[in-house]
Nucleic acid binder design. Structure first.
Ligand SMILES: [Mn+2]
Ligand SMILES: [Mn+2]
Ligand SMILES: [Zn+2]
Ligand SMILES: [Zn+2]
Lengths: 154, 154
DNA sequence: TTAATAGATGAGAACCATTCCAATGTAATG
DNA sequence: CATTACATTGGAATGGTTCTCATCTATTAA
């Protein structure tokens, strides 16, 4: 699906939730839809500073929290002290480097079944009414493996 | 396995890593081994205040971070702003209530296979050298379902 | 045992990501 | 237009965690 089709669809979700589509919300969402680097507030702020120089930090936090509340965006921690954000259009999970903090998307055929199975089992065992999940896998990214001399640079 | 056997075994792990077993480390570890309530630093501090009234907050943070570094303890966030800690003797994952923050342990026969499968797939796809994972499932705990009128109190 | 070194604790200061607040601005409603 | 509710902004406040450094304790060396 084209990026602007994704945008249209997502903006519609905001409207359906009776949220106003302000310029700030629009450009933050556009940034997240088109970048999958799992940015922090600071990175978003720097990237959008030219388009909306006066956008307050609290607006970015408010906006992202709103997106999270409506399940458009997920929050991630990689140990660097600040929260990372990710537009969650396509189901996936994350591999996080324990050395440099790099976060990469992962999915595979059948992942959805794994996920559904986990949620179903959890509901049965815990009695929780399940609304979602997060899976994270930790390890050394390929670059750090080389940097730390664990793997040879081929 | 008896609780003090678990303690002995875990203290040995500290010694193997050439870490000193101080009174502070001992009682914090004992607390975590015998409580599975996923406490915060504040809760640990209150609980142990009678045994070691002068224990500094920084000591608790240092100690817990050390345990985390050596994979004896895992950190959890439930959205209340502070980090929760969990002695991780037996592999399990967590169901977290999105309303009240309650964290409960979950496991089931075959969970280990699910986990191993996820790690293996992730290594193949991402090239990461995997060292661990975290799985969390979100939803409403049974009490909150009743409290919010979603489920009847039977 | 004593001396030297490294490791650990504790009190409080500092940090800093995030939230809160009050004032201002703007969109929706009718 | 008038009213109301929603959003943005900048700055202040918050608070969990880390940092600093003096003190203390365990370990090792002599
Ligand atoms: Mn992602
Ligand atoms: Mn647990
Ligand atoms: Zn890395
Ligand atoms: Zn609950």
């Amino acid at each position: 699906m084209a990026s602007n089709a994704v945008m249209e669809e997502t903006l519609q979700i905001l409207k359906d939730h009776k949220l106003r589509v302000t310029p700030q919300r629009h450009i933050i969402l556009a940034y997240l839809v088109s970048h999958h680097n799992h940015p922090t507030v600071e990175i978003i702020r720097d990237a959008l500073g030219k388009e909306l120089p006066n956008m307050g930090a609290s607006t970015i936090y408010n906006t992202l929290n709103t997106f999270v509340d409506h399940h458009l965006v997920v929050e991630l921690q990689n140990g660097d002290g600040s929260t990372h954000y990710d537009y969650f259009g396509t189901p996936h999970y994350h591999a996080i480097c324990t050395n440099c903090g790099r976060i990469v998307d992962v999915t595979y055929p059948g992942f959805s079944d794994t996920e559904k199975g986990l949620e179903k089992k959890t509901a049965e065992i815990s009695g929780y009414m399940i609304s979602g999940n997060h899976m994270e896998v930790y390890g050394l990214c390929p670059e750090c493996q080389i940097k730390l001399g664990i793997k040879n640079n081929e």
